[in-house]
Structure formats: structure tokens, C-alpha cells
Design a protein around this nucleic acid. Structure first.
Length: 468
RNA sequence: GGCGUGGUGCCCAAGUUGGUCUAAGGGAGUGGUUUGCAAAACCAUCAUUCGCCGGUUCGAAUCCGACCCACGCCUCCA
């Protein structure tokens, strides 16, 4: 089966062909670093991680760039509110963002371009657009892109510029623009900007939001690259504007595949700062939820499907991850050498997983193959039928698939500070009690550790413990 | 107003170029095996049914028409 993706610009699934054979260049819109990202934001970054990991699973050499927006209305306003410099503010949340990515086991992008480091290149692109007649200057020293000059404007979002102009919002829109939907490439300096400004051919000011992604993607991935992602809310106006800028500036194709992930919902409403119905990663971790369960929850609903967040779902996710991990551990510790080599089972599982994922990352279909493997593997081990080489093959396949899922190596515990020596001594004490058939004492010790968040599991291989 | 997405068992969810769907998989439940008891695992059970109505067809969750409901974009936003 061919790898296919739903391409927003054509509103249909298309076979994926990279520009350079075997290589994929992808640009993923990153966060504006003025505050902690919430898990709705992370749903998109998680989707992009899944996409990247799956492309790698399929053998592609992937180059990913993710921008960090470190200058815009929000960052400037917030830094002034807090009385700190723009850099102080954005450094804080850049660090928090990278820490969160690590917690969620999201593979780092190869590049994290920051808008403030590409000002010269942005000025150059704006100048280029102005020179070609696509942009005009206004009284306040801003430069706007004239969408009337670009015939294909609205193609990505499927919006008709004519109709956009007729809305009741025209009156709220800015004054100096010629067309209501024209957008700023460069913003002339205003007093509210404080000391945030750069010199330009149009006087001092700062770049518009959209130009940053056009410039940084081009600088790092070339004028024409394979995949551009973001949340569905980026479709319009951000990505639409990027296309207009880039295509007009370079005269070339910009991006081949536009992939967008759906929202994370809370009580069927979009999770957002303005509705104040959001959870940050830190909120959930503080409540005792494990990062691997959060990752699982965000990753296992198809990316173009709205996902309704609930604590209940986190519980389900935690149990599913636990099952996967226990199977993985059981394979590692499996000692019997039975007659079944399971070549067909392994091959079938691999194909089923791949065929499902090839179809626009159908994770549910892929996971059904994985859980079928779990079930059949356990059954064979229960009956001592699985061979050692078979166990090794299943184990290897699980690891290969986990390159995509990325949960096996994650810690399920919420508290890493436990005294292992103490636990081991308690286990020993309990084993002595069990050997003497003093089950009351044995259970008392188990309850004692349970109160500390430690769960004991008796296996044929001895007593194991894990964090609950 | 324009554009768009989704409604499948108790919950989540795949399948939607018609037949292999007598509807995958996960979570929960129920009965059993195993275990000192647990945990995990295994066995069995869990939708004559896919929002509603009508139509096309030998055959529809999948196609057509109407309707109901939920959500989103058209404004900064993952």
C-alpha cells in the first residue's frame, strides 16, 4: 500500500511522494513562547511527532524545523505586564517548552528557529514583495500584503476573498488597510511596543507574524519543501498568508502537503486560553497523571478527529500503556523454548500496522494489530508454546513499532523519588512471611507499600514492584 | 450568511471508492481457569446493529434525498 496523507489544500487523501527520494523536509508551526503551552497545543505537536516518527519508520530521512515565535503582540504585552525584557520572558518559556517536549517523549526537531534571529531575512522578503508590487506601505510605517494581487488567495482555506470582504467585521478591521483582509508583513513601531523594534527601510518596527514562517522555512528547508503542519486554526489566516507570501516572493511552488490536526476539546468545546478550560502538562502531572498516559491519550485518536479530553480517558490510556509494557516485559523475561516460531504472526502484524498507518496515519487500525499481537503472544506464552527466537522476534517488532508510538521507554510513575533499598527490604520481609504462610503479615506489608504508591506483583520470577 | 467536520455497543473508536461486517481494537462489566490472596494472563460473554426518515440495489454502517443533533472556521489562537 502507498503512504497517503489527507492534504488540506485539495481536501482529499493523496499518495505521498517526497521531492527528494528518501528524504522529507517538514516544517511544523511551533508555539508562541509567552506562557506555558496547554495540552491542546501539545496535541498538535504530538501529531507532528507521530508523523515524523512514522515517516522514519517507513525509512525516510526526515528533516524537521519547528519555529518558536518570540516576538508578537502576546509576547510584547506579557513582558511589559511582568516588567521584564522580551528576551527574559521568551527564554523562560522556551525552556519550559523544551522540558515539556522531553517529558512527553516528543522527538526534538532538527532546528528550532526563533523569529528574532531572522529579522534581516524577513526584511529582505518584505522588500522583495514590495518591489514586485505585492505590498504597500501605510501612514504608520507598516507594510501590508495586497491579497487582491494574488489570484490563488483563499485556496488553502477554501475561502472566497470577495465574500470575506462582505462580513460585518469590516468595520472592526483596521483603518489603513486598502482591503479588509490584507495582512501586515511589517508593523510600524507603536508606543506599546516599548523597546522592541528593529530598523528597516520603512523605519523602525517589527515583523508581522506570518512572514516569520515563510522566511524561516525557506531559510532552513528551501523554497519548496514537502510537508507543512499545524493545528486546523492555522489554516486561516496563517498558512493561507504564508502561501501568498512565499509563492509571490519566489515565484515557485511552496509546500506539497499541508497537514492539520484537529482540536482537543473539553466538554465538547475547544480547549483554549480564552475559555479558560485548559490544562497544562504540569497541571496534569501535578494531579498524578503519568506522562506516558497523556502521550497515549493524545496520540491514539486520529489526528483529524476532534478529541474530547477527560480524566477518565487518561485512566483508560494508562491501562492500555500498562498492558503494552507488561507484555514487553514478559517477552524479555520469557524463559521457555516452545515449538512456535511465529514468523507469520510477526509478519502479519507488521503489515497490518503499516497498512493502517499508511492510510493517513490510521492509528486505531494500527493499534488493533498491535493488541491482537499482544493477545496471541500471551496465549502462546501461557501454554509454553512460544519459542525463544519467536519471543525475540515479537519483542523486536514491538520495539520497531514503538519507534512510532514512543511509550515503552517512558516512565509511568508520577514520583521518581522512592527509596529502592527500603522497598527491597520490605519485599524480602514479605517473602519470608509468605514462605511461612503468614499471609496476614504479607498482606500488611503489601498494603503498607500500596499506601506509599508502590504496587507489588508476584510473578513466577519473583516479586516485582512498580509505581502506581 | 458562507465554508466545513462529526453522530457506530456502557465509554472511547476503526471501518464509509456497497458484499470477506454474522461491525476491528481499547477501556469498563459479567461468569470461569490460574494465583495463598492480589496483579497480570487465559477461556467465555458483551451491537441482527451503525443519529432519524425515505430511496437505489440481489445486497448499504458504507450510495442518493430530506431532516435532527453536536462542534469548528470565516478574528489572535495548536
Amino acid at each position: 500500500m502507498n503512504l497517503r496523507f489527507y492534504n488540506t489544500i485539495n481536501r482529499k487523501k493523496e499518495d505521498f511522494h517526497s521531492i527528494d527520494k528518501g528524504k522529507v523536509r517538514m516544517y511544523t508551526c511551533g508555539p508562541t513562547v509567552y506562557d506555558f503551552a496547554h495540552i491542546g497545543n501539545y496535541r498538535t505537536f504530538m501529531f507532528e511527532d507521530l508523523l515524523r516518527r512514522y515517516l522514519e519508520f517507513r525509512g525516510y530521512d526526515v528533516t524537521q524545523a519547528m519555529n518558536l515565535t518570540d516576538v508578537d503582540d502576546n509576547t510584547i504585552r506579557r513582558s511589559r505586564e511582568r516588567g521584564i525584557s522580551l528576551t527574559e520572558l521568551t527564554d523562560e518559556f522556551k525552556a519550559a517548552f523544551h522540558a515539556d517536549l522531553k517529558t512527553l517523549n516528543i522527538q526534538p526537531a532538527h532546528q528550532y528557529p526563533e523569529a528574532t534571529r531572522y529579522i534581516a531575512e524577513m526584511i529582505e522578503m518584505v522588500q522583495n514583495l514590495e518591489d514586485q508590487g505585492y505590498a504597500y506601505k501605510t501612514e504608520d510605517g507598516s507594510i501590508y500584503f495586497n491579497i487582491a494581487k494574488y489570484d490563488n488567495y483563499g485556496k488553502l482555506a477554501h475561502l472566497n476573498p470577495e465574500e470575506m470582504l462582505s462580513g460585518e467585521r469590516v468595520t472592526d478591521d483596521s483603518y489603513e488597510k486598502e482591503g479588509a483582509r490584507d495582512f501586515a508583513l511589517w508593523k510600524g513601531y507603536k508606543a506599546e511596543d516599548g523597546d522592541v523594534h528593529w530598523e528597516s527601510p520603512w523605519g523602525k518596527g517589527r515583523p508581522g507574524w506570518h512572514i516569520e514562517c515563510s522566511v524561516m522555512s525557506t531559510e532552513l528547508l528551501g523554497e519548496h519543501f514537502d510537508i507543512h503542519c499545524g493545528g486546523v486554526d492555522n489554516i486561516f489566516p496563517h498558512h493561507e498568508n504564508e502561501i501568498a507570501q512565499s509563492v509571490c516572493a519566489t515565484g515557485k511552488e511552496f509546500v506539497n502537503y499541508w497537514l492539520h490536526s484537529e482540536y482537543l476539546l473539553v466538554d465538547n468545546k475547544k480547549m483554549s486560553k480564552s475559555l479558560n478550560n485548559f490544562y497544562t502538562l504540569r497541571d496534569l502531572l501535578d494531579q498524578g497523571h503519568a506522562a506516558d498516559a497523556i502521550r497515549w491519550m493524545l496520540i491514539t485518536t486520529h489526528y483529524r478527529q476532534k478529541l474530547n479530553f477527560s480524566v477518565n480517558r487518561l485512566g483508560e490510556a494508562a491501562r492500555a500503556v500498562a498492558r503494552l509494557k507488561m507484555f514487553h516485559e514478559r517477552l524479555e523475561n520469557y524463559k521457555v523454548d516452545g515449538p512456535e516460531s511465529v514468523d507469520n504472526l510477526v509478519a502479519d502484524t507488521h503489515i497490518r500496522f503499516q497498512n493502517a498507518m499508511d492510510n493517513d496515519l490510521n492509528i486505531s487500525g494500527g493499534l488493533s494489530a498491535v493488541f491482537d499481537l499482544l493477545h496471541k503472544g500471551h496465549r502462546l506464552m501461557d501454554r509454553d508454546l512460544l519459542s525463544q527466537s519467536g519471543a525475540a522476534k515479537v519483542h523486536q517488532l514491538l520495539k520497531t513499532i514503538d519507534h512510532v508510538l514512543g511509550v515503552l521507554e517512558m516512565d509511568s510513575g508520577s514520583d521518581p523519588t522512592v527509596d529502592e533499598v527500603f522497598i527491597e527490604s520490605k519485599i524480602e520481609e514479605r517473602n519470608t512471611a509468605r514462605a511461612n504462610k503468614d499471609f496476614a503479615a504479607s498482606d500488611a506489608i503489601r498494603d503498607e507499600l500500596a499506601d506509599l504508591g508502590i504496587e507489588l506483583i508476584d510473578t513466577s520470577d519473583g516479586t516485582k514492584w512498580k509505581l502506581k
